[in-house]
Design a protein around this nucleic acid. Structure first.
Length: 201
DNA sequence: CCCTGATTCGC
DNA sequence: GCGAATCAGG
């Protein structure tokens, strides 16, 4: 692969957006993150913050206040065509995590049905043992609260909170090799048929 | 160990 | 110019 104008453009764009070299490399394909970094330097568009080294994860403010300057209500034009939206978890386990939000320590949540659909399936979380639920809730206290963009192949992609509000993030704990979720969440996502059969209490 | 960018240097 | 190897750090 060579650095065609198009590829360079993608590189510039993504780098400007703050994407990491590895993410850019993945997007472009055919190159490693080293190649991307090398190109970035050759293009002279190195530092993007002004700091020197390291520039990794960033604690996402729980509530991102509106960046309204001081006296400029002018809604600046944001020409962001932004490429394809990052895809969520690729697979759908037997018991899809429809709304694990009911286990988060949040104030009373308004019953919002974002899709406006009846949500027929609803794999009733009642079929999950109290022990597992308890451990999951415990684990979620330690969740890394990652945003969609911060997820990788090795981070738990279990959604927590209400997608319709700002109280939404992903578990982010180390996922099991080959699995989309961490140990605790795999436990509730993948349940053997046998264990699912009339487990009442 | 996972990840990040920075630098070097043979090609 | 390119990018793997290496380095330095979180």
């Amino acid at each position: 692969m060579s650095w065609t104008d198009e590829r360079v453009e993608t590189l510039k764009k993504m780098w400007a957006e703050g994407q990491s070299a590895s993410q850019i490399a993945k997007e472009l394909g055919g190159v490693t993150r080293n190649a991307v970094i090398g190109k970035v330097h050759r293009l002279g568009l190195s530092n993007r913050v002004g700091g020197g080294k390291d520039e990794a994860e960033e604690e996402a403010p729980v509530v991102a206040a509106k960046p309204e300057p001081v006296s400029r209500p002018v809604p600046e034009q944001r020409p962001e065509p932004v490429a394809a939206a990052p895809r969520p978890a690729p697979e759908r386990p037997a018991a899809a995590p429809a709304a694990p939000s009911n286990v988060t320590p949040l104030p009373i949540r308004k019953a919002i049905i974002p899709a406006g659909q009846p949500l027929p399936p609803q794999p009733s979380a009642n079929e999950i043992s109290p022990e597992v639920l308890a451990s999951v809730r415990e684990v979620e206290k330690h969740a890394k609260r990652l945003t969609l963009m911060e997820l990788t192949e090795r981070t738990c992609k279990w959604p927590i909170g209400d997608p319709a509000t700002d109280d939404f993030w992903f578990c982010g704990l180390p996922s099991l090799p080959g699995k989309p979720y961490c140990e605790a969440h795999v436990g509730v996502a993948f349940q053997p048929m046998s264990a699912r059969r009339d487990r009442r209490r």
